[in-house]
Every structure is written in C-alpha cells, then in structure tokens.
Amino acid sequence: MSRGDTDPARSVSAQLSDVPDEIRDFEDRFVEAAGKAGYEQASCFALRLAMEEATRNAFRHGHADLPDEPIDVAYDITPEIVTITVRDHGPGFDPTELPDPTAPENLARPHGRGVMLIRAYMTDVRFNDTGNEVTMTYRKPD
C-alpha cells in the first residue's frame, strides 16, 4: 500500500517545548502515524499514554529548574515495533527508587504513577545511567 503525501512521518526526531498545543499536535501526529502503520486502537491508546507520561515527566521533573528549555523526543515506527526516546537536560533520577504507587500507604497520593503506567503498557523500558533519558519499545501484539 502506498502512502499518501499527507501521511505523517514514521521516523521523527524533534525538540519539544512545554506548550500544550505543541505537545498535543506532536502526540496526535505520532498516534496518527502509528495508526497508519497498522497499529490498532488499543495499541494507539498505549502509545499515546506512554508518550504523554514520558514527556510530562521530562518537563515536570527533569526540567523543573529549566522551564524554558525544550526536551528531545524521537520515535521510529515500523510495522512491528515502535521505539520512543525522550531525553531531558536535567540531572536525571534513579527509577529504582520510585515508591510503589499501588502500596496501600501510597494509594491516595496524587502523584507517582507515570513510570508505572509506561512500564505496564510498553514492551520494554530502559533508562540511561544518568536517568534523564528513557527509551521505550512497543511490539505489535500478534
């Protein structure tokens, strides 16, 4: 099947600013590209959620002291695998030290579920040693 001229790119590397409309447009193009690459609605739900949580974490935590600085976001969509990389320019964090948001004592806390949701929906999630870059892969279900 040939792709039309208006199809969104399936391999993108970009800088993203903390501007709601810009983030929403970026996510919309990403999800549209995944849909046109054959990913079903449930997969697109997972991909949008992971992209949203990772970019939000980068801005809110990584760039807490860098509010005007953009983050680096890249994705590559093949018919079988989607790879997303989100990198901020902050000091990083240790993902192994995140409290379990499902523990009874944390259940009523309003924060701390983003990384957990990414891990739940993506096939593989890796942080770099500094903890300021996350690479997420999603394999299309059989």
Binding site: F45, E53, R113
Partner: peptide, 17 residues
C-alpha cells in the same frame, strides 16, 4: 472520555480526598 493521563488520575485522587 477516550484518554486520560496520570495527571488526571492525580486530580481524581485529590477530589476523592
């Protein structure tokens, strides 16, 4: 509603509390 994020869950928890 088709989508929500952990930020929306956080707001729902604050409402609950």
């Amino acid at each position: 509603v088709d989508h929500l994020s952990s930020a929306a869950l956080g707001t729902l928890i604050t409402i609950h509390n």
